[in-house]
Write a protein that binds this DNA or RNA. Structure first.
Lengths: 197, 197
DNA sequence: ATCCTAAACTAATAAGCGTTAGTTTTGTAA
DNA sequence: TTACAAAACTAACGCTTATTAGTTTAGGAT
């Protein structure tokens, strides 16, 4: 009889969520069936329901885990008395490391949140909106302290977050890249631009 | 008897594709049913098949239309003798305008291409890879001409393309933004960075 | 008025979906 | 060895899916 393999640190539920994140990334939430998920784990579809509540619950778990990770880190950096340049450097580095080290979960949260159903959908969007508005304030503050150029703060946040999100295209050739170098290169472009002065 | 409304410039097929792009953007390809699409157009699902081949064909049409638009524009700019700074400014402005004026089609091409089936999937990826490698060459050439700072060219292309893609988040409040201003602000950040020198 | 054709309709197909109920297997502890 | 509980299994439910075949409608041309 087939069994889900779990260890002391990872429950059977964790195994299912991890594999779900992998498949949702690869094929999309709606196109991934419970039978397919079960196949990849090595059991029958109905067996999954001994450990999880529903397919939707899997998506919810992944999306909110990621959202909370980002919020927690933002709070932690906000509590320091670093300069706004340093705060931004820290949060950008965190986004990059999340992108590289928790690729699948972040990808699902970024791409499949639309398939959430209310009230989860509303909650998720509200949390993200709040997160972004706090980052806009970090830009505004940096401009006032003359650390940053006088740019549009909303556009700046959008540009930075989107650029980092683009690392999803990079993840495939993870083996071929030096992560530290990549991190520095992207930070360099976002902070200092393309053009030689 | 219900009828699909078409004009001299837009065939019934065009009407279906347009509405499909709208729904695929809003709900995702896999989560959009042909019945739903037909509902929005005002006919029965089976009637659609008088005008289109299949659901997959709709996705293919949208994805390759977008891909070809980008490739065509790249060729046109490449044929000029503008500086590489100017070439980059032109292609960025084109990406931004595609993002704002053909939002739904571009969104589908960016997000739902995974649902393509071979050989379309392979073709699509190959075309995109080629596009990106040509842009990398534009960065390399700009560095050699001392127009650009000595940055990692792959990272630069990724950063710029991803930042522009992020405009999809902006599209919702289209009414509230000045497009020209937005375009300039993003270009400014990508070219000159965040930090005051 | 009659005919033709475009384009709608209805009805049905086979396959796949998430999920549940009820049963059996399996490993562990008494 | 027996008893218990965790976690697998089989089978089935009721729905929805894309798509096809065959039929009917309706507008324009003869």
């Amino acid at each position: 009889m087939a069994r889900i393999i779990s260890t002391k640190n990872t429950s059977k539920k964790d195994v299912i969520i991890k594999k779900a994140a992998f498949l949702f990334t690869k094929k999309g939430f709606a196109s991934t069936s419970m039978r397919e998920l079960a196949d990849h784990i090595g059991v029958e579809a109905s067996s999954l329901y001994n450990h999880i509540g529903s397919k939707n619950e899997l998506l919810q778990t992944i999306c909110f885990k990621v959202a909370n990770d980002f919020t927690t880190q933002l709070n932690q950096i906000a509590d320091t008395d670093l300069s706004f340049t340093q705060k931004w450097e820290q949060i950008i580095r965190f986004h990059i490391s999340m992108m590289l080290n928790h690729y699948e979960e972040v990808f699902v949260a970024n791409h499949e949140w639309k398939q959430l159903e209310d009230p989860f959908l509303s909650n998720f969007l509200q949390q993200r909106k709040l997160y972004e508005s706090r980052l806009v304030e970090w830009i505004n503050a940096g401009i006032q302290k003359k650390e940053f150029r006088n740019i549009d703060p909303h556009v700046a946040v959008l540009t930075i977050l989107s650029a980092v999100r683009g690392l999803e295209f990079w993840h495939r050739h993870k083996k071929n890249i030096n992560i530290k170098k990549l991190e520095s290169a992207m930070l360099d472009h976002l902070l200092f631009g393309l053009i030689k002065k």
